[in-house]
Design a protein around this nucleic acid. Structure first.
Lengths: 135, 135
DNA sequence: CCAACTGTACTACTACGAATAGTACAGACA
DNA sequence: TGTCTGTACTATTCGTAGTAGTACAGTTGG
């Protein structure tokens, strides 16, 4: 029996990310931190669009991306559900994207003339949220 | 006497970043790692555009951004030079942007289901390049 | 002084991505 | 059958990025 939950997602217009990416990031983080578990049902495309006051196509786009990545599975006529975990990316692709993320982060540290050790410790703390999942 | 150097910048069309951002990131990293020092002269707008086979307006845009951020200073008729170091951003703005970078990185770690400790140690290593400057 | 360089500032155009609006179809279920 | 669900379009608007072209002002060496 799928649990349906109020998703409690927040979209900020000032955010540099496109709306659909904010949704993708938000849903994924909830799955990664076990706030959403496999089998949980997400709000419908039209439901979330109404809740967030955006166009349903934008939600559909975000959901489609999450589905393509393997985080969600969709049942036409039924809805969207959190998928069971599986390897979603090849190791090569993972490392490639990690390289990019690391490069971008380092460039930003340089751009802000931010103390590297401080950046690292702040990130360490921020990453705890992902490790909590295994606790 | 300003030193003029071959800039050795590389632009990749496959890169997700816009061309101008690649230039900004590249130049800034060379300054942050002391490969370029205050007083060094950069290639002219038209010179770098020719070297990279891009439009001079794109280079001008990148240079303008670096100038606005305080990394470069421009002398009309003369050229662009690496500026002397100064506080470029308010502490509040720095922290805000650092928060964003951290958040983006954490979201990517989640997206890739990447082991957080591994991400952290890889980033630690990558950040050494910025610490070398003070050695 | 002039030519050749320099940065800067436009205008106009093209292409692309993001978001939206609207519509329609197929599936599921009470 | 009506109402929900996801999915798939088409068309439009807007903003960003890059380009091409032009022009002006500043600098410098011959």
């Amino acid at each position: 029996m799928p649990r349906t939950r109020g998703l409690m997602l927040q979209i900020a217009t000032g955010d540099a990310r496109p709306i659909s990416k904010q949704i993708v990031d938000g849903v994924r983080m909830k799955i990664a931190t076990a706030e959403l578990v496999p089998g949980d049902q997400l709000p419908s495309v039209r439901g979330l669009a109404q809740q967030l006051t955006i166009n349903p196509n934008t939600v559909a786009k975000a959901y489609a991306e999450l589905t393509a990545e393997g985080w969600l599975e969709s049942r036409q006529g039924l809805g969207l559900f959190v998928a069971t975990p599986r390897q979603r990316l090849s190791d090569g692709e993972r490392d490639r994207r990690m390289d990019e993320a690391i490069s971008a982060f380092v460039h930003e540290v340089a751009a802000l003339d931010y103390p590297p050790e401080r950046a690292l410790s702040r990130l360490d703390r921020a990453l705890q949220v992902l490790s909590r999942k295994t606790a």
